[in-house]
Amino acid sequence: MLAGCSGDRSILDPAGQAAREVVWLWWGMLAFSTLVLVVITALWLYAFRGGRRVARSSRDEQRIARRWIIGGGLLLPGLSIAVLLVFGVPVGQRMLPLPLVDGQQAERIEVIGHQWWWEVRYPDAEGGEVVTSNQLMMPVGEPVDFHVTGADVIHAFWIPRLGGKIDMIPGRTNVIRLEADASGMFGAQCAEFCGAQHAHMQLHVEAMARDDFDAWLAARQSPPEQSGSHDAAREAFVEHCASCHRVAGVSDGQQGPDLSDIGDRVSLGAGRLAMEEGAIAHWLRHHQQLKPGNRMPSHDHLDAETLDALGDWLEALSP
């Protein structure tokens, strides 16, 4: 059964405190509910068996009926929901982004939902803000506050194995606190329906030790190295892509995902395509078939050579 519960976005395979408490709630509620369902169904079936009915006085009948109604209709649900709240409310409270006890600051990560990709910002990184997209690195074993919002429509931020979800609403910023127990990779996906490509708005989440995390941030403090062999591609990029995409040190477009460390990511198109050699060039040619409706215009007017060169260069972009 445990195997059936696993999966990189399974609620039943928790990797953080919040998610774990919810799973225990779930198994408890499941056991109790199953019991209730079985007992009620059995009672009904028993009542249906008909036949040998004893004649009762109407007084007796009234007493029996009242016992059922008060016992089953009032006490059973009344006690159940009281118990549920006693267990449930504290669980919810422990998930609140309350101030930490010893003056500690929770790591702050900003996540902005776009149709259909994720913008991830680390405003407090030492040496200046770090921006990436469609991937989220977080430190392990410490609380992280995610400040989320939506750039266009409402999206929802959700890392199932770490804990609950929160909506990303234009004009508001919501905060959710999550913590990962151990390093590892988790799946995440937009949970609030956000249009044509809701299915392909996935986020790669990786939890890593604090040192690795700091190193990861530090590596993004300087623009990616540029080797001379990609000059042509870079020029094509500046001409055709730069107004939408940012590459640190090259362009500052804000419409589409930041591409400064794209060579380092595991997928393209917010989870649509695995990153491997030649993947970007393939994506540039076929992205409207792979992810119909996405906001990037087609590149049919560019010749194959340019697209290949662009792909090569982008794949090399890595801190």
Binding site: I81, A82, L85, V89, Q93, L96, P97, L98
Partner: peptide, 14 residues
């Protein structure tokens, strides 16, 4: 009473 009981333990605006 049942709906109001959480005011005892839950902070108001978080």
């Amino acid at each position: 009473l049942f709906v109001g009981i959480p005011v005892i333990g839950v902070p108001p605006c978080l």
